[in-house]
Computed example of a mutant assay.
Amino acid sequence: MDLVDVWFVLIAVLWTGYFILEGFDFGVGALLPVLGRDEVNRRVMINTIGPVWDGNEVWVLVAGGATFAAFPEWYATLFSGFYLPLLLILVALILRGVAFEYRGKRDSASWKARWDACIVFGSVVPAFLWGVAFANITKGVPIDAAGEYAGGFWNLLNPYALLGGLTTLSLFLLHGAVFISLKTAGGIRDSARVLISRLGPVVVVIAAAFLVWTGVLHGNGWSIGVSVGAAVSLLGGLFAVRAGRDGWAFAGTAAAIGLSVVALFVALFPDVMPSSLDPGWSLTVENASSTPYTLKIMTIVAGVFTPIVLLYQGWTYWVFRKRLTAKSIPR
């Protein structure tokens, strides 16, 4: 493999890790008004992701930075063409992060309710818009001969992209509910399991529709095979919930999300942003990449620091692995 191919794979890995990890804390935040029916349960839910949510967000920063350094043409076209949705994602993430820190600063129900609304907004909006963005990247957008985005905001809100956004949002909601079931005990876990049983079939239908559409229009043998693996993982996760195996259920929904992202990248390769105006104007791993020397330096740095980051983030999850209950919350 050339270094351009290696970095395409590494960026795919970063986005896959981001969607799996940030996916469940987006789901927890979005489900706050559904499962957090009183202040104690809301605090239990927030505490399940409290030690890890900010670490999960680092993955998207690294993915963006790696795209900028390894594929500057891709980065420039993506961030100029998708400026408004990416700005909305950024604002939502800022509000969400501030809300986690500020909601407990005053003992006031109205104060906490406002920040809880920010948590929900900051979880739902990115969960939906990331799906819209990646669906558009896979489908292709109007890119001219100069490699610049030639469309507008409304071009991004096509039926395929909206289904992609609905897919990521529904998958993250299910993933978050499974995480709550894994990380809690007592009444809130029981409520999460009931929600999973109702939400699961809906998510299966939405995700299957999106993966089939992707396979028919943009897929190849490899991406279709990966999509089938995603579907099997999702069904396996739901069966594990029924069997009371929370760990296997979480592994199933995580694998379903991860394999879905991989399927999109496999369908995309060797393009990084296909042009819907002329296939010859598409950005590819070759014409959008940095110089070989830049990629070589990046590979050395990534080889040194990536294992360290994975080790300390894995250690964080291990330290905070125990289940939480209402009794864990001080008055």
Rank of each mutant, 00 (worst) to 15 (best):
L3T: 04
L3N: 04
D5I: 07
V9E: 08
V13G: 00
W15M: 02
F19L: 14
I20V: 15
W53Q: 03
D54Q: 13
V62H: 04
G65Y: 07
A66L: 03
A69E: 02
A69I: 05
W74K: 07
F79I: 08
L87P: 05
I89T: 12
A92H: 04
Y102D: 10
R103G: 14
A109Q: 12
V125E: 12
A127C: 07
W130H: 12
A133W: 01
F134G: 08
I137E: 03
E148G: 14
G151V: 11
A161P: 03
T168Q: 02
S170N: 11
H175N: 10
K183S: 09
T184Y: 00
G187I: 01
I188P: 10
I188G: 07
D190Q: 13
L195G: 06
I196W: 03
S197H: 13
G215K: 01
V216M: 12
S227I: 01
A231K: 07
A231F: 15
R245I: 02
F250A: 08
T253V: 15
A256P: 05
A256Q: 08
I257W: 00
L259K: 03
L268G: 06
P274L: 11
D278L: 01
D278K: 08
P279T: 13
P292K: 02
I297G: 00
R321M: 11
K322F: 13
R323E: 13
P330R: 11
